[in-house]
Amino acid sequence: MAHVAGISIKDSVISAVTEAFDTMVSLPIRERDKGETGSFIGPERLVGTVGFAGQLQGLLCLHFSPPFAQEITATMLGMEVADVEEFEDINDAIGELTNIIAGDLKTRFSRPGFPCSLSIPSITRGTRVEIESVSGAERYCFFLSAGNNPLLVELYIRSTST
């Protein structure tokens, strides 16, 4: 697909991630060389996910290392990193950041006529987390840096419009 009604998926994702990270945690985003999704972040990771439903269906997944997720949470809550101990706080911060980016993408894609709804954010933690594509969905993978931290963004998307 690469484009949604003429809008570049890559440009949309990079712009949405850049704006959200700049506004919420003051971190610059840059693209990195492609790597293996399994080794880019490390085996242990935290994944924020928001689903799209409607004429555009799919999933947005943001992969973080646990220390980076903790750092983001500290920045968003105005706390010291060492004081962020609760999983609940980290889940909430990463969920909100993922939700903001998904909302931006939804707005960008809705404009060319792909109305869709968003699920509430969910968080997955674990080692060797792999996201499988839903049937018929195309997978887009973006290897980014947020400051000095690796950030993997996956977008699974399919259109039901004819």
Partner: peptide, 27 residues
Amino acid sequence: LTANSSPEEIALITELGARDYMTKAYK
């Protein structure tokens, strides 16, 4: 406060009587 600023949603929010709206992300 919304992460989704579709024209339909903004129209509904306004019609229901909200004074203003802001789209996430925001400082």
